[in-house]
Every structure is written in C-alpha cells, then in structure tokens.
Amino acid sequence: MAPTGDPLARRYRRLLRCYPRAYRQERGDEMLSLLLDTAPPGQTRPRLREAVDLIRNGMRCRLGRPASSTVVAWAALAAVVCGLFSAALSARIAWETAELLPGRAETGEVFRTVLPDREPDGVTTPSTFFGYYTQPMTMQALDNLLLGDGGEYQQTATDAWAAGPPAAPPEETVAVAQRRLRESGWHLDKVTADTSDSCADKLCASVVPVTHTTVDASRGDTLLTVTVNSNPEPESPYLSITLRRTTPPLVLPAAIGGGLLGGLAGWLVFGWASRRTEASHPARAVVKVLFGVTLLLWWLPVLVSVPALASHHRGEPHPQWHPLWEWLGQPTFSLFFLVGSVSALLGIALATLPRPDADRLSTLASG
C-alpha cells in the first residue's frame, strides 16, 4: 500500500469518507489498495469518473438496505425538503444585512418629490423587515401564527399618505409624480390601473367606479410604490407611498449555501436512521411510519403553495419575488412544519434504541 504521505492516497481517503464509518473500517484499506494498484504511474489526483463513482456509491451505501428499490427516492425527498427549509432559514437570516427601512426624514423627502409642496398627513416606520401585522413577532402572537394566521407575517414597509380633497385630478397627479421621480433619479418600472365599483352612499343604493393607479419605481436598494385613488372617501388617502428594501445581495448565496448543507444533512441523517433500523430493530415499523408522516407534513404545504404563488405572481405585478419561505407554505402552514419536526425528532430518538448484538454485527458487515 502507498505510504500515508502519498497525495493520491490522501485524496482517495477523502473520497472514501462518503462511505459509512463501519464500512470504511471493514473494507476501506482493501478499496484504497485496489484504487492505488489500478492507478496509472504518475497519477496524483483521482480521475473525475472515479471521484463521481466513489461519491455516488458512498452516499448510496450510507442508506443501507441494499435490496431496496425505493430507499434512494425516499432519501432524495428527505434531502430536498431539508435543503429547501434550510435555504429559507438562511435567506431570512441574510435579510438582516439589508439597510434599515427609510425613516421619517427620507420618507418625507420622497413624498414631497411625488407630491410637491405637501407634507404627509401620516407616516409609519416599522422596526423590522418582516412583521406580523407589520409589528415585530412576539411569543403572544405565536399561537395565532400557528393556527392559520401565518399569512400575515409579511415584508414590512414605510408608508406615508395624503388625505382630504385631492389637489388635482388623478391623471395630473400621476403624470406629475412620474415626471418628478424621473428627474430625481428613480427608475419607473410599471404603471397599472385597477378599476372597481364602490358604494356611493351608506345604503349602497348606487355605485361609482373607483380607479387605483399604481406607479412602481426603484432607486438603489429602495422600492417605491405610489398609489393614487380617483375617488377617495372624505377622510381616506387619495395618494399614498410605500417604501421597501430590495432583497440584499447576500440572500442568494446564503440560500444556496444553506440549502446545500441542509440537503446533505438530511441525506446523512436519513441514511443513519435507515441503517439503524434495517435489521430487526425494535422500533423499525414505528420509525417508518413517523418518517412518512414527516414527509407528508413537510411536502404538502410546498405542493399547495408553489402553484398558488406562481398564479399570484402571474396575475399581479411584483417589483420583487415573494421570499422563499412563502413558496414553502411558511409560516402560513407552520403548524404542519412543527408537527412534522416533532415526528422527525421522535423517529430519530427511536432509531437510537439498541439492537440485538447479532443484528448489529450484520448491519456493520453490510455497510
């Protein structure tokens, strides 16, 4: 066998770490000797095909159950969903690197750009990027969030508005806002108009058409939405602005990195539990049921939310995509995720129960 200092041997040993420890202890030296004996003279690195085969076979070996035709598919489902949730968590953490939401001074400046010579009648400045009913999440609100009201956990924004009788016709107000925004360096994205009927009196004996014209613009890391109401109520805003932050640059690499690590962890944990329970394990049947429950509760919200959000994005203009966790049905279906997590932890705990010595030896021999 090549000495430990041989660079090719060291690199082969790194690749052999894809196999379970027990498998390496029993067959690792034999596999390494075979790989080195078949390597051409002067080779210092494993060939690409060799590396891919060792990684693929090693990760398959971690699942145990060599006669099973479905274990790889189940492991893939577990790894993918773990990767998605890990990516969503990493993205949410990376959102904390964004600039703070615009304060009153910056909001007032933008408002005067949109509506010259007019101070806003009101300004709201949230203290967090994502809030529950625009407020920071608290333990007191946790029960409502888990019990079907999780959709109210959304990206927050700084708002300002002007109430009272409009100073000019809505068409003129929109035109002036567009011109002044361009002059101030804003990039105009979309202008949309949505017309609906509104009651003309308290009894709703007659209706009047009301048009809400929306102007989306962006500048740097700030998104601006201007909304003009063609027929406002006496004390309701006829013009409002909303300021949000764009997705921070760190969110995408954080989500990719977190997703890959989460997917790998999901595969390894599933493989460990699979090997632990492949012989006559006392909780084998229960662990399999708990695993099925976990996958059902984690995947079901994803399968419901992805088509719904895709349709939502096609039907309405969006300056930026909804965050990843909403595509996974979170926190709207957070109760599903919580119960699934409890099921997964219980299954892992049961998989640690001791097995008979004969079964343990058999498992080690099969990898």
Results as ranks from 00 to 15, higher is better:
residue 350 L to Q: 07
residue 355 R to Q: 10
residue 173 T to M: 13
residue 44 T to F: 03
residue 21 R to L: 12
residue 51 A to S: 10
residue 137 M to S: 02
residue 333 F to D: 03
residue 5 G to R: 08
residue 55 I to E: 02
residue 144 N to R: 10
residue 115 L to D: 03
residue 84 L to I: 05
residue 201 D to H: 09
residue 347 G to Q: 09
residue 161 W to N: 00
residue 165 P to Y: 11
residue 4 T to A: 13
residue 341 S to D: 03
residue 86 S to T: 10
residue 298 W to N: 04
residue 76 A to C: 14
residue 141 A to D: 15
residue 262 G to T: 10
residue 67 A to N: 11
residue 168 A to F: 12
residue 170 P to D: 10
residue 283 A to V: 01
residue 289 V to M: 05
residue 222 T to A: 03
residue 353 L to S: 09
residue 212 H to C: 01
residue 103 G to T: 12
residue 267 W to F: 03
residue 162 A to C: 12
residue 301 P to R: 07
residue 199 C to Y: 11
residue 336 F to N: 15
residue 263 G to L: 05
residue 201 D to Y: 06
residue 67 A to G: 05
residue 113 T to M: 09
residue 203 L to G: 10
residue 133 Y to P: 04
residue 136 P to V: 03
residue 218 S to V: 11
residue 22 A to E: 07
residue 4 T to P: 02
residue 237 P to S: 07
residue 142 L to K: 04
residue 242 T to W: 09
residue 132 Y to S: 02
residue 201 D to G: 09
residue 165 P to S: 15
residue 167 A to S: 14
residue 108 G to S: 15
residue 120 P to D: 10
residue 20 P to V: 01
residue 230 S to C: 10
residue 264 L to H: 01
residue 41 P to F: 01
residue 16 L to F: 06
residue 105 A to S: 15
residue 83 G to N: 10
residue 107 T to D: 05
residue 363 T to L: 12
residue 89 L to W: 12
residue 333 F to W: 14
residue 306 V to N: 05
residue 39 A to M: 08
residue 363 T to A: 14
residue 123 V to I: 15
residue 5 G to D: 10
residue 231 N to G: 01
residue 69 S to D: 07
residue 364 L to T: 02
residue 158 T to E: 08
residue 90 S to G: 12
residue 58 G to R: 01
residue 72 V to G: 00
residue 176 V to L: 11
residue 235 E to Q: 11
residue 215 V to H: 04
residue 253 P to A: 03
residue 153 Y to P: 04
residue 337 F to H: 03
residue 149 D to V: 04
residue 276 R to H: 02
residue 234 P to A: 12
residue 214 T to F: 07
residue 314 R to M: 08
residue 309 L to A: 04
residue 155 Q to T: 13
residue 164 G to K: 09
residue 261 L to N: 01
residue 30 E to G: 15
residue 298 W to K: 00
residue 314 R to F: 09
residue 367 G to R: 04
residue 193 A to I: 05
residue 218 S to N: 08
residue 151 G to T: 06
residue 30 E to L: 14
residue 217 A to Y: 04
residue 228 V to S: 02
residue 158 T to G: 07
